[in-house]
Design a protein around this nucleic acid. Sequence first.
RNA 1: GCCGGGGUGGCCGAGCGGCCUAAGGCGACGGGCUUGAGACCCGUUGCCCCAUUAGGGGCGCGCGGGUUCGAAUCCCGCCCCCGGCGCCA
Length: 465
Amino acid sequence: MAVWSVLALLRENPEELKRHVARRLMDPSIVDLAYSLDVEWRRLQTEINELRHKHNLITRSVAKASSGEERRLLLEEAKSLLKVIEEREARLAEVEAKRAEVLNSLPNLVDDDVPVGDESASVPIEFWGIPKVWVGYLEQFRDQVERYGFNVKYELIDWKPRGHADMLEEVLRLGDTVKAGEVAGSRFYYIFDDLVWLDFALLLYAIDKLTSKGYTLVLPPYMLRYRVMSGVVDLGAFKDAIYKVEGEDLYLIATSEHSLAALYYGEEIYDDELPIKLAGISPCFRKEAGAGSRDLKGIFRVHQFHKVEQFVFSKPEESRRIHEEIISNAKEMFQELGLPYRIVNIASGDLGAPAAKKYDLEVWMPAQGKYREMVSASNCTDWQSYRLGIRMIRRKGMTREYVHTLNSTAIASTRTITAILENYQEPDGTVVIPKILRKYLEPFEKAPKEYIKPRTPTRNMNKRE
RNA sequence: GCCGGGGUGGCCGAGCGGCCUAAGGCGACGGGCUUGAGACCCGUUGCCCCAUUAGGGGCGCGCGGGUUCGAAUCCCGCCCCCGGCGCCA
């Protein structure tokens, strides 16, 4: 009754499924393999069912056997039948394992709205705000806007803003990635005082926003078992993103999305309980193994950060609407934070296996002269729920199908801080604190309120007063 | 971590090698009765395979193995819950 949409298409129209896979720039021959394994799996299952049926009939008659001789013959027959069943079952187990592996490597279907191609095919569909554009970046700014047929108002500035990494270590002197590198490795960081306050203020702001919209606040497990983790991420993520705890069947979450998706692991949800909207808060741990030397400086791309995440379980027919809703929530927050952004409809080749459609929210970074990803909002349809065994029961008719899951960043702390350091920077290096955050800093005596001021160099980085 | 008790269908709860084809109850869903609801009566109520009109079959008692012709029932490993001890923020 409940059939995973990808499996349904595999059986009904494998050629169409191939086109979906091809749109992701993956090898569609995996579909042929999945198809033949599925057919073979079903054939074997039918065969074994028939053999078992025979065996069951014999077994039931043993107890009623009228004579010792009849009983002996029945036992003999049952035993020989068992041998055949055993052999077939071994074969089934083999095929079944292979089939599961191949099915699990199938990506989600691609939504019709998704532009087809590699990452260069991703299209900005909306711009907001008035970016500060340094004269030296004017040309490349225009290219990032006009190429897509947009006309965006900007504020031209004649001084070049310092990059967030320089702000951190040289201007504000509130971060130390050198020492962190020495004691933990590259992509780790220490941040201090005002930036820590800012980190928490951002999280509080996101929590405040989402809970006021009816999202349930969740502090989830930071580690999950393999079988759960493999339901929420694709195989590539294990290699490039996920840390494992040595000697335990536990993996550190790369986002609270993983734990939130797992909240209904193996459960059924009645349709009248949906949608279930969650706001998760957690640290996120990422290996960033596939990142090479990209964004090595500063705290844009790091092994650990805090994030408030939106996660929704929805009825299938509502997931597209909710996808728009969660990206809108993110837009609202970045508008209130006063960070100029664009929304990008991510191309099929860059989606990631779980997502049928994905929007990124990218903030203009004045010191880099580029829009950079701050938020990623995905509609995973039934890809995760199939793997996690999370189904929906429709009251009307009591029919079962897989729920849809959606996720979106609300605020990722360190990354948003980098955007603030560049966008709220003044020529003398002062950073203005976005007004919306001030009420979250107000209760704390030592928290900054309006500005973060540059600090004069001291001989010893460890003495920060 | 150690000792003891326990995990049965959506929920409660019987069963402790073969009439378990998992009793009984509650709930839910469908139908009957009713102007409507309730009460009442009947049916359905997990997963998979084949056939899809009716149906046929297999599997399923925390998870995974094992013993047996036959396992919810016996054995082993793991997970989780409750109580006690220990340890700890």
